[in-house]
Nucleic acid binder design. Structure first.
Lengths: 242, 242
DNA sequence: TATCGTTGCGTACAGTGTATCGTAACGATG
DNA sequence: CATCGTTACGATACACTGTACGCAACGATA
């Protein structure tokens, strides 16, 4: 597979020994889509730091530099991965309903995407998401939102979406590694939890102790939804006032 | 400074060629605090990816592995840096006032910390912040918050703080790289902005076009405050109802 | 004094992203 | 058809990463 195919015109060899003339060693089909697909697959199966240029190239039976004909940097690969995720969010269907339903749909789609592709969590809130699918998703969300007369002023719509987005990014990111995070996560159970328990036993943090004691009272999903409701209430208050 | 000192007991050399016996080359003072200080300084001056173990070690006139007597991994160095930032947030003074003032103080402190130390933005929302200073900060915030009778139920306090924190993390992270981000940022001006402008000219994204047109209507700082107010309103609505 | 366990940290390894550049294939020309 | 200049591919190589490993030097013990 990676053995040097004999150069098609090595003069020291007779014709019969040499490879066929159209020797470009079957330049196995390759295109951006395949690259992104491979990267997403690796990131899904393992995690984001398993995605290295070499690794993805190997996955496609090529050398690392071959990818650089399709991408000009690894960052661009990440951008493409993000946009692939937005592609799924777009494909999940039309966005409609009253403004609250629209914002809830946006929230659900993003959260679902981040659950399907855990690596996405590390990528939201960092670089801007401006790929074609992201733009399409945003465009549709805004279009749906602005059907409501209350959001006739575009600045109001932008503000609402900005607030929602900020909450989403933060909530989704914090869901990993919340105080007293679910002990199913190995990192929490083995590393942080024992430490936290010891700190609390010192009686220097009575409030936190109480919090940890009640930590199991609410599931992450419920917390997400409660927060979302609160944020939407807040937006409603601002909209009404404006 | 880094020339190989001849091993003091290399049998192949005569005494006169060998270094003095007490060859331990003056093990310059070192401790965790100095390491963290150096790392923060480098990250402040350049950015987070300038912080490599080698680089920080060199900054302290030592080899890379020397740091591993004080840290067991680079991640721990990042944890220490984060907690140093929380140290400043704690030192900024007591937290008091009514619940709204408390949450606003928390918000301001975190945002200020992220402006003073831009690298902190990359570190919030990722790993949990459980260093002693972070715990102290949280403890004080909760203590102040719970003076309000409305937050007698600890679960309410946790929920409120969770929502606030999610918004803060997201808002602060998104402040870098928002749609039509400030053109003072070189990356935006040279890389994203021209692209975005071209996309909008295609008329495929009329909503986004309108948004971009009005992008300058509001400053990032105002947007942050507006969002914060909305989130606090939302929390108030939930608290009142509960 | 000779030996040993412990400690500190330099060396080296396996990996990263990507600049560079030799070379192979091609299209145009003699 | 042979030759050449041009292009584009992608292997090699470079500068860098985090850190495992093992060696050298030390203090304590026999």
């Amino acid at each position: 597979m990676s053995e040097h195919p004999t150069p098609a015109s090595d003069a020291s060899l007779s014709v019969w020994e040499r490879a066929e003339p159209s020797a470009r060693p079957t330049p196995s089909l390759l295109n951006r889509d395949m690259i992104v697909r491979a990267a997403v697959a690796v990131a899904d199966r393992e995690d984001l730091e398993a995605v290295s240029v070499r690794r993805i190239a190997a996955e496609l039976n090529s050398g690392p530099m071959r990818l650089y004909r399709y991408l000009s940097s690894k960052e661009e690969l990440l951008d493409l991965m993000i946009d692939a995720a937005y592609g799924e969010m777009v494909a999940a269907g039309a966005i409609d309903g009253d403004w609250r339903a629209v914002l809830e749909t946006v929230a659900e789609r993003l959260r679902l995407a981040c659950r399907t592709h855990r690596w996405l969590v590390d990528l939201i809130g960092g670089r801007p998401h401006l790929g074609p699918n992201a733009l399409t998703f945003l465009e549709r969300a805004y279009a749906a939102l602005r059907k409501e007369p209350r959001f006739g002023d575009i600045n109001l719509a932008t503000e609402a979406m900005g607030i929602l987005n900020a909450y989403l990014v933060g909530a989704i990111r914090c869901e990993r590694g919340r105080i007293a995070g679910d002990l199913s996560d190995a990192d929490w159970r083995d590393r942080w939890w024992p430490y936290l328990e010891r700190q609390i036993k010192t009686d220097r943090f009575p409030e936190l102790a109480a919090i940890v004691e009640h930590a199991a009272d609410i599931t992450p999903a419920a917390q997400f939804r409660n927060g979302l409701e609160a944020v939407l209430d807040g937006i409603e208050a601002r909209i009404g006032r404006a």
